[in-house]
């Protein structure tokens, strides 16, 4: 089984996670730029973070047999901090990079005017750089927030097939698929979405334009939720081709729209452990 996790924050994960992910079939990931728990207080912290997403993290991932790509943006929460907003002026440089396959995570957190401004501006950057957009939907007041997000996406003029709305649930999936955008689901141990609920959503809405991710980060989360969802699909009667579509071909099709997803197709006979799996620690 080959798995592409379209949304996972590997910066927060250990080398044990990389090994377990490889063993579970994960061969490619996209790491969206997001907040880090601890608030940032200056644009320079963002640039170092972006550099990590483009430099150290893909280097680390490669040593475990996993291809790492990223999305770049000012996230909605920190778009509310005037000390962080100047990041928007430097995004042009970063959105031009080879391994950047979308603008994201953008979207709403608390539905403020500052978030409106950052979302609209970054959707324009996506259009200018011919990139897809990864849009986070708010955890609080989700249905209303998702509706507003769809309005802003429509007003921006970006093609809906270039947009994924993420962290959806039973109440928001319908309006997103109807809009022509992609529907993203984050499978979490307790919150957001479980693998069994995900299977029910796939039964009802089908496998077209659906992305399933672990969104694993520094909070309570599980980088193997993609594999667990695949197993739940098989147990519920989906076949291997359905699983391959949802967990490999769909993310490849979505991020492939960037023209920058330079992906090595995994070989089916690869062993479950990657040979070069000890990270170089460098100058000790």
């Amino acid at each position: 089984m080959r798995i592409f996790d379209p949304h996972i924050h590997m910066t927060s994960r250990t080398t044990d996670d990389y090994e377990a992910m490889y063993a579970a079939g994960v061969r490619a990931v996209v790491e969206p730029a997001f907040w880090l728990g601890q608030p940032r207080t200056s644009p320079e912290s963002f640039y170092d973070y972006f550099d990590g997403l483009l430099g150290w993290e893909p280097y680390r991932a490669a040593q475990f047999g996993i291809q790492h790509f990223c999305t770049i943006a000012l996230n909605p929460k920190e778009a509310n901090d005037p000390r962080c907003v100047p990041v928007l002026d430097e995004l042009d440089r970063y959105l031009a990079k080879d391994r950047v396959v979308a603008v994201g995570e953008i979207g709403y957190d608390s539905m403020t005017p500052q978030e409106d401004e950052a979302l609209a501006r970054q959707l324009q950057l996506a259009i200018e750089h011919e990139l897809p957009a990864l849009v986070h939907t708010p955890h609080r007041d989700k249905a209303t927030g998702t509706r507003s997000t769809l309005d802003v996406v429509r007003e921006s003029g970006i093609a809906p097939e270039l947009v994924v709305l993420d962290h959806l649930n039973e109440l928001t999936v319908g309006m997103v698929l109807d809009s022509g955008c992609w529907a993203g689901f984050s499978i979490y141990p307790k919150t957001k979405m479980s693998e069994d609920r995900m299977v029910e959503i796939l039964k009802e809405h089908g496998t077209e334009r659906v992305l399933v991710n672990s969104a694993a980060d520094w909070g309570r989360s599980d980088p193997l939720k993609t594999r667990k969802t695949a197993d739940a699909m098989l147990a519920a009667g989906f076949d291997e081709d359905d699983v391959d579509k949802v967990l490999w071909r769909n993310p490849v099709a979505f991020y492939g729209q960037s023209g920058r997803l330079e992906l090595d197709e995994p070989k089916p006979d690869e062993e479950a452990t990657f040979q070069g799996n000890s990270i170089r620690r460098g100058g000790a």
Binding site: Y47, D51, L54, G55, P58, Y59, E90, R93, Y94, K97, D98, R99
Partner: peptide, 8 residues
């Protein structure tokens, strides 16, 4: 400063 590893 703003380059990815290939640019650097």
């Amino acid at each position: 400063r703003h380059g990815d590893p290939a640019e650097q």
